[in-house]
Design a protein around this nucleic acid. Structure first.
Length: 497
RNA sequence: GGGGGCGUAGCUCAGCCGGUAGAGCAGCGGCCUUUUAAGCCGUAGGUCGCAGGUUCGAUCCCUGCCGCCCUCACCA
């Protein structure tokens, strides 16, 4: 890991040490934010200031050198003059671009009016043993950007901005639910039985308890236990883990918002989602709901369009009845979809996805999903074939999923039993009886919501790939021997000592 | 997993029809007190992703592997 060190930088480090200087001091004179200085620059000219940050490229004029200094708030030019820095001058070359420094000096301008800190005191805060990427292009190699995000972040300001925006999005999502009296809670990530979604889980093991565990695929079942407990409005923003493929819109670990509100139904939840977007448009996008995503314009200001699932299906597949297996199969073959061994409802939904979903530019609420593909949602009283459920689509991407929650313990247990009987690797190996027990104590009618925070951030920042809003996306190991030792089929966990 | 693309200096990239590799920036040495992609002169820097094969000769052609990107599948 040390073979990327630049020899010349190591030499400078050793020269500094030989001269009795600490290249990694515990503390240096602390400065103020660069942005604060720039904000009141006119009023502070001629006054002293201290700034800390990373040095950019040095522009050397012999007895004068310029460089920019960058901190989290911005960057400003620093001027080093021989006549102001007699003691520092002989060692000036030991401090170079990419080093972290504390600079004290006098604020002024250059002949061209550039705000400049004319240094009178330069303290090395941390020596950089590796050079920064090229100044003009920055770091562009995608793989390097993900593997060395720390470099990506300091070399590419727009990357910092994107993650600052993500932070803002999460903060404002919290603010919205907090303002409605929801309690933010944290539920188990390590779960003995996984549930709340259909996905393959990651497995792990607790040594002391000698117990196999799963990383959660959804917090859903624990949050609904809280409704039974009387916490009528709860939400959680947390990581969930799904042992599936990686793509521009899937990372194996991602951040999910789930909220549950007692005494509400899916119509109420729809209003909450619109309220959330109104809030985010105001706070994150500055009131302008227009975003560009994957080359298209979207307006995220509510209200959003609404369309019935079956209406969309009928419009895209004239003459095909969603509930008519034979007709659906015919249509699926026509579309070139695989049909063998696929359950009727699943196939019908495949046809929906193939003919409707990609075209859902939205934002649009697709609602009233067939019960066969909605195992956790309540049936619509007026039409028991469909459920009180909606999904929010933008740019053909599923952003959210919500429904009136099933709270009938007998029905729930029956559905769990059927699920377990399917014995797929996406279904739990046993019924979550404790959850059923919770429902038996009585869960108020409730509306629940799940929103993928990563995808929401993609949309709000125009990021085409989920990896552009995940700081450290999952990548393969580079070390081939380590990679070969890994087994995709999860090696047996180490026994307890 | 299928298909397509990519991998060359620390970074960004050239490299023709096969003849053992080049630029800019960064580095190093010099000149320069107002630059801001500073400039000028000089200099150093390479396991051409890895391993085989074809060939007198491979960065280039072939095969396998590794990694990344796109896409399809998977993933409500």
């Amino acid at each position: 890991m040390t073979d990327g060190i630049a020899p010349d930088r190591l030499e400078k480090l050793q020269a500094l040490r030989a001269a009795g200087q600490d290249p990694f001091p515990a503390r240096v004179p602390r400065g103020e934010p660069v942005a604060a200085v720039l904000a009141d620059f006119a009023g502070r000219q001629g006054r002293a200031a201290t700034l800390c940050g990373r040095l950019g490229q040095i522009r050397d004029f012999g007895k004068l050198r310029f460089a920019h200094l960058q901190d989290r708030t911005g960057s400003i030019q620093v001027g080093f003059q021989r006549e102001r820095l007699p003691a520092f001058w002989p060692e000036r070359k030991r401090i170079e671009s990419n080093d972290l420094v504390s600079v004290t000096g006098e604020l002024g301008t250059t002949q061209k009016g550039e705000p400049t800190l004319w240094a009178t005191e330069v303290v090395l805060a941390a020596k950089a043993l590796r050079p920064a990427p090229e100044k003009w292009h920055g770091l562009t190699d995608t793989e390097q950007r993900y593997r060395m995000r720390y470099v990506d972040l300091f070399a590419n300001p727009e990357v910092r901005d994107a993650f600052a925006r993500r932070s803002l999005v999460v903060r404002e999502v919290r603010a919205y639910f907090d303002s409605l009296g929801y309690l933010e809670v944290e539920t188990p990530i390590l779960q003995p039985i996984f549930g709340g979604a259909a996905a393959r889980p990651f497995r792990t093991h607790h040594n002391a308890l000698g117990m196999g565990l799963f990383l959660r695929i959804a917090p859903e079942l624990y949050l609904k236990r809280l409704l039974v407990g009387g916490m009528e409005r709860v939400y959680e923003i947390g990581r969930v883990f799904r042992n599936e493929g990686v793509s521009t819109r899937h990372n194996p670990e991602f951040t999910m918002l789930e909220s549950y509100e007692a005494w509400a139904d899916y119509r109420d939840v729809m209003a909450r989602v619109e309220g959330l977007f109104a809030h985010l448009v105001a706070k994150v996008l500055g009131g302008d709901g227009k975003v560009v995503f994957r080359g298209r314009d979207y307006d995220l200001r509510p209200p959003f369009q609404k369309a019935r699932y079956l209406d969309l299906f009928a419009a895209a597949n004239p003459g095909v009845d969603w509930f008519d297996d034979a007709a659906v199969r015919r249509r699926a073959r026509e579309l070139g979809l695989p049909v063998d061994g696929i359950a009727a409802a699943t196939l019908a939904n495949d046809v929906f996805e193939a003919t409707v979903e990609d075209g859902l530019q939205g934002p649009v609420f697709v609602h009233d999903y067939p019960v066969a593909i909605s195992p956790l949602a309540k049936r619509l009283a007026a039409d028991p074939r469909v459920t009180e459920r909606f999904e929010l689509f933008v740019a053909g991407m599923e952003l959210g999923n919500a429904f009136s929650e099933l709270n009938d313990p007998l029905d729930q247990e029956q559905r769990f039993v059927e699920q377990v009987a399917q014995r797929s690797d996406e279904t739990p190996g046993e019924v979550d009886l404790d959850y059923v027990t919770a429902l038996e104590f009585g869960m108020p009618p409730a509306g629940g919501l799940g929103i993928g925070i990563d995808r929401l951030c993609m949309l709000l920042s125009g990021a085409a790939s989920i990896r552009d809003v995940v700081l450290f996306p999952l990548l393969r190991r580079l070390d081939p021997t380590a990679a070969a030792a890994d087994d995709a089929e999860a090696p047996a966990p180490p026994p307890a000592p």
